[in-house]
Design a protein around this nucleic acid. Structure first.
Length: 597
RNA sequence: GCCGCUGUGGCUCAGGGGUAGAGCAAUUCACUCGUAAUGAAUAGGUCGUGAGUUCAAUUCUCACCAGCGGCUCCA
């Protein structure tokens, strides 16, 4: 199939858009082959906002190379080359690619099934193994830009050779390209890693290390507000809190399987070579084995279940050095952790409750519209990543699927994304660059209870292993804060804002009155600062606006005389003079409305 | 861990083989101000760290550290 012509509305069609980008990637590959004939072709698909192509090329493509490639691409577009499809039998297809030295294509051909058609697309002197479809002519790709170069492993495995990946984007006309690039620039202005530092939410220090941010007073305040909110809500929902150690002997992790399956992610203290003479400890990467020990302190009856343990839990994971990103990927983080220990017939209800709690939290912070669900299963082809046997895995996944379907949840399925001990439902969110991360996860664990010897006595007098649901209610606080900063471009909702209001003194002689007003507002439970510098009011307002302070209370002679405050809203400007009690009531009402929206 | 880019006063950035500049911020002084930047003066940097090349390095080379975008991994 070929697309012979297009108009603007075609581009709204996802299939057409994908085809458009795919042809763009062929044009890029064509240009690269002209300029760098020794580069070998790997794969070059369309992606969400553009396309890429992977090349095996000794050396790297520089920014100047990209410019040259772009120029060559323009030529190819101008040459109005028809894009033609043809098919070949396997042996001839293989021969063609071998002649061209395209070893990666040969590998791909060898993996195609017996009954699959082997098709190629040709434009001018450029031929590429490809299932298609494509645009009919190179001339249709009118606007494009190569955005970056990156390394990428062949077939996504770090055991394979690293190839050079060139990313680009393309549109039917220059206007749309320009618009897209501008949107990208705007998005970058919301980047939590920029805005969070500028606004003083967090910082990092070389001496401390990668992935170990310092939460400054503003960031710490918002996290504290969130944490109190989560803990209070969990208490209402029947959770018991624990406070467990940050580290344990290796023995604990050997039982859980972390030692075998999660070791690369752990910070280990002590020398394993001398394990028989001295202790080997590890900082905890997860809270589960610790909370299990709380369960094990008594014999349990079916009447005791479900038991819901919650903990605001600091975890440590030794992420690879290239992985850390602002507050989204760090080495030490704090999570709203919890484990629900339940009988099989309670599993569905507890799962529902967990999801309900998670959704309640998302709604409270305003991220409910921005998430998607992912059912993460194990990968039967990759057994060493998981513990337990296939029959059990499949059975539990079936159970979980039923639960999800009962809830009529709209989810995607991901193979191989399960935890090593069980399948999970991940609540996914995209950051400002479009990169997806897990915000919240709810996991069904059918294995660790047995490993830890966790039982309950059922009504029939039998000792049975409970199910365990591992879940978070708002995910990890640092990551959640990052997403909030991006969503609100730094202006967090009033109830989460570290500084809810600022009292601005008109001149220095009003400083005392400003401090008195601030004290009164703080007494009412509001988070208030004072600006009593010898600056003009315009400057103080400007700075408060830029620092995303929601309410500015301006204090001068008039207000002192009348016992009022002149209120300015960050969003709506001057609100005029207000009675102080009315202001307090207004702000507190706004906080309530936002939390319980 | 891998590929690429980056690292100059608190912040944003300019410069460039002969030991550094601007704006904002800070401090001091003057002004005492009414809804998005008052003025003047002062102070502040061993140019991320360490080696190497050189008569001379912040500038060139290498290593390391950190930040960014990808890959693999993951909350």
């Amino acid at each position: 199939m070929n697309f012979g012509r297009h108009n603007m509305s075609d581009f709204l069609d996802p299939v057409y858009k994908q085809t458009f980008r795919h042809t763009s990637s062929h044009i890029m590959a064509h240009a690269v082959k002209r300029l760098f004939p020794e580069a070998k072709l790997a794969i070059g698909p369309a992606i969400e906002n553009g396309f890429y192509y992977d090349f095996d090329y000794d050396g790297t493509f520089t920014a100047e190379d990209l410019k040259k490639i772009e120029a060559e691409m323009k030529k190819i577009v101008k040459e109005r080359l028809d894009v033609e499809r043809f098919e070949l039998p396997r042996t001839e297809a293989r021969k063609l690619m071998e002649e061209k030295g395209e070893i990666y294509k040969v590998e791909l051909i060898d993996e195609l099934g017996e009954d699959e058609v082997i098709s190629f697309y040709k434009q001018g002197d450029f031929v590429d193994l490809c299932a298609g479809p494509h645009l009919a002519n190179t001339n249709m790709v009118r606007a494009f830009k190569l955005t970056q170069v990156a390394g990428a492993y062949w077939r996504g495995s770090e055991k394979n050779k690293m190839l050079q990946r060139i990313y680009g984007t393309s549109f039917p006309d220059k206007e749309q390209l320009k618009l897209y690039l501008e949107q990208l620039e705007d998005a970058k202005k919301r980047d939590h890693n920029k805005i969070g530092r500028e606004l003083g939410f967090f910082t990092t220090v070389d001496y401390i290390g990668q992935g170990l941010p310092i939460m400054l007073p503003k960031g710490a305040k918002t996290l504290q507000v969130l944490q109190r909110f989560v803990e209070d809500e969990e208490e209402r929902r029947g959770y018991l809190i624990t406070k467990t150690p940050f580290m344990a002997k290796s023995d604990l992790y050997k039982i859980s399987g972390h030692w075998q399956h999660y070791r690369d992610g752990m910070f280990i203290i002590g020398d394993e070579e001398k394990a028989d003479q001295e202790e080997v400890l590890a900082l905890r990467p997860m809270t589960c084995p610790f909370q299990f020990q709380a369960y094990l302190q008594k014999t349990r009856s079916y009447r005791d279940l479900p038991i819901r343990y919650g903990e605001t839990s600091t975890l440590f994971r030794n992420e690879s050095s290239g992985e850390m990103h602002g507050l989204i990927r760090v080495r030490q983080f704090t999570i709203s952790e919890g484990h629900l220990i339940c009988a099989p017939d309670q599993l569905e209800e507890e799962f529902r409750n967990s999801l309900d709690l998670a959704n309640y939290m998302l709604k409270a912070v305003g991220l409910d519209e921005d998430v998607s669900y992912r059912f993460s299963k194990w990968d039967p082809e990759n057994r060493e990543k998981f513990i337990g046997d296939a029959v059990q895995w499949e059975a539990v996944q079936d159970t979980m699927k039923q639960i999800l379907d009962h809830m009529e949840l709209n989810y995607e399925t991901a193979i191989g994304e399960a935890a090593f001990y069980g399948p999970k439902l991940d609540i996914q969110i995209k950051n400002v660059f479009g990169k997806e991360d897990t915000l919240i996860t709810i996991q069904i664990d059918f294995q660790l209870a047995e490993r830890f010897g966790m039982f309950y006595t059922d009504s029939d007098g039998e000792r049975k292993n409970p199910y365990i649901i591992h879940r978070t209610s708002i995910g990890c606080y640092e990551r959640t804060l990052a997403l909030l900063l991006e969503k609100y471009a730094g202006a967090l909702p009033l109830w989460l804002a570290p500084e809810q209001g600022r009292v601005l003194a008109i001149s220095e002689k009003h400083a005392d009155a400003a401090h008195e007003l601030a004290a009164r507002l703080r007494q009412a439970g509001l988070r208030i600062d004072v600006d009593d510098r010898a600056e003009k009011i315009g400057k103080k307002i400007r700075e408060a606006q830029m620092e995303k302070v929601h309410y500015m209370m301006i204090i001068g002679d008039q207000e002192i005389e009348n016992g009022t405050a002149s209120v300015r809203s960050r969003l709506h400007g001057d609100l005029g003079s207000m009675d102080v009690d009315a202001l307090i009531a207004k702000m507190k009402q706004e906080v309530r409305d936002l939390v319980t929206r």
